[in-house]
Design a protein around this nucleic acid. Structure first.
Lengths: 246, 246
DNA sequence: GGCTGTAAGTATACAACGTACATATCAGAC
DNA sequence: GTCTGATATGTACGTTGTATACTTACAGCC
């Protein structure tokens, strides 16, 4: 799809597999395999060698599609964002400015983002962490397109630039932050039937952490999608009518 | 904390120097050194060997104070949280229930958190990431005490348990999320005088990212503390009076 | 003093990792 | 066929985390 798709020689009638043994390597094949590997075995298991074996290839072959391990990690963020972007489906702004549903669209972006995070929980650390190191203009296109999309939606609110960016940062922060908090491990020993031991609450002295101990068992008992949406609305409402007294 | 001048006992050869006595190692000395190292040289430079040399010690000595590298990273989060907690100063709830300033206290927590993040930017990835892997009950005491403190503050709002936890997650998410978004790299080439090149905007085709390009130069132009506070208020206002129709 | 048990730090060694560099293999244009 | 560039392999090296075994420092007792 992008400028570097695979070369299609399909126009010819004889579609002979390019290689009888294995399909040619591709950047997206490498990245997808990396995500799959991490989904399966965790981030720590992502080594060049493991990834290479998964692809039936020697480790050094990967360096043609990602210039190093760091670049590979960035590539996984790219794959993640691409999945979000595609998950959004048709641009939906379709024919000429359906003016007022920008808020619903924003909610959809947040929803899909969290859904993809659900599909690839182990990739989340990368998604939240890598943009701290790579400057805006060098982020993967998929991520930039997502950003642009959000800005386009906010544009329909008819705010001035500063207010728009204010909301932009708020939306991004909330989506990422809620993702992080909602995904924190609360269960200590999953096989334990007794809730108190399952959560490991015996480690929390009642005298020091009374409320934490009392509420911990309720921590996971909520509707993430609803809460995500409610927070988003709260931010849009509360920050939308900012006083420009600066 | 014990602070003692350390000397490298470089002189060998059978001479017994009168004062080659190094300060004893300590868990907090190790963790502080780790944070200092990362602040100075970045996360990638944090190796057991580098840390050991900084402390004037052999690498294996560290394993008595942190059972491995992962544990060391967790320890740094611990140090971070401790710094936040101490930065809060006196408990301030002082004499018997000063009822209504819980919101102001919450704002202070958020403020201090961000201030500490400012002091140790390179530790932030760990702070947001580690809790995804370590279950609640195994988190460092400093972090738990912070959590307990926030819960205690929210308690004063007089909500039921579900609403309290709702706000609890929202506050945590917002503080972390805004931290992340606000700290994302936007500058590409810091030494470039021309803003367009400094941000690397020439990499963003106008046709594909019109708004991103137009607004990027304003992205860093805002008051983080004010925005953090405003978002916090928006969430507290918008989520405080939820309808319990679940 | 000297002896001794325990904690603190050292010394050595090793498997696994990322990756530089040189080589082999293959698809298509001539 | 041969040539040529892109693609994948093979080998090798320096670093990393850490297991294991050893040495030193010191407290308490005689």
């Amino acid at each position: 799809m992008d400028r570097e798709g695979e070369r299609s020689s399909a126009a010819r009638g004889g579609e002979r597999a390019p290689s009888p043994r294995r399909a040619r390597l591709t950047r997206s094949r490498v990245l997808d395999a990396a995500v799959a590997l991490v989904d399966r075995d965790g981030l720590a298991a992502l080594t060049m060698r493991n990834l290479a074996t998964d692809l039936g290839v020697e480790p050094m072959a990967l360096y043609r599609y990602a210039s190093g391990k760091q670049a590979l990690l960035d590539g996984m963020v790219e794959a993640f964002c691409a999945e979000v972007y595609e998950g959004l489906g048709p641009p939906a702004e379709g024919a000429g400015g359906t003016g007022r549903d920008w808020r619903a669209e924003l909610h959809r972006v947040a929803e899909v983002f969290h859904a993809v995070a659900d599909a690839h929980p182990q990739v989340v650390p990368l998604v939240v962490t890598r943009p701290l190191d790579v400057p805006l203009a060098r982020r993967p296109p998929a991520m930039l397109r997502l950003n642009e999309h959000v800005l386009a939606l906010l544009d329909r609110a008819g705010l001035d630039d500063h207010a728009t960016l204010r909301l932009y940062r708020a939306v991004g922060g909330w989506v990422l932050g809620y993702l992080l908090v909602d995904r924190r491990q609360v269960v200590d020993n999953p096989d334990e039937p007794e809730p108190l031991l399952r959560l490991g609450l015996h480690r929390l002295p009642i005298s020091e952490y009374p409320r934490l101990r009392a509420l911990a068992r309720l921590l996971a008992d909520h509707d993430p999608a609803e809460e995500l949406a409610a927070g988003l609305d709260a931010l849009l409402d509360g920050l939308g009518d900012h006083r420009t007294d600066d």
